[in-house]
Design a protein around this nucleic acid. Structure first.
Lengths: 74, 74
DNA sequence: GTACATTTGTTCGTATGTATA
DNA sequence: GTATACATACGAACAAATGTA
């Protein structure tokens, strides 16, 4: 998957990608999702955009985030 | 030299200052750069900004950094 | 060998300014 | 005007390496 420039916001596209990686089982419960920095590098997005996508998944209770540590699949 | 609030990013200004201190000979090869904490105090910047400036000089091969020790003029 | 202080490494939290659609 | 996106900057917490007492 790749983030494309188009009508769908990038943060939304990233949320979709991460959600798929979680629900598919690629990222099982308890495992850490890539750090914000790693996601920046991997998808070529700004940190604010990454955080917005993560916020979506946190809102959906799919992940939990711990300050200074990272985000984990719920 | 002082860091000013303006169009030039602070991390870039600090990188310029440190580069000048190195190339002028004030900080000869092998000598340690002030610690991140000391640079914070001296220039009134956040640690992240300090680290970004140091990263620039490391990229330029002007300094090398050792975990737990410090950064040294290359 | 342990405990502690110092220093760099990593990560998330928040805010501001700029530009664009 | 609103939402999106990027860059910058400060703050905070946690972690690892180093050296010393």
């Amino acid at each position: 998957m790749a983030i494309v420039d188009g009508p769908v916001p990038k943060f939304s596209q990233l949320a979709d990608i991460l959600r798929a990686r979680i629900t598919s089982g690629e990222l099982p419960t308890g495992t850490p999702i890539p750090s914000e920095y790693d996601l920046e590098q991997e998808y070529g997005l700004a940190r604010g955009t990454i955080r917005k996508a993560i916020g979506v998944l946190r809102e959906e209770k799919l992940i939990v985030t711990v300050h200074g540590k990272g985000s984990y699949v719920a």
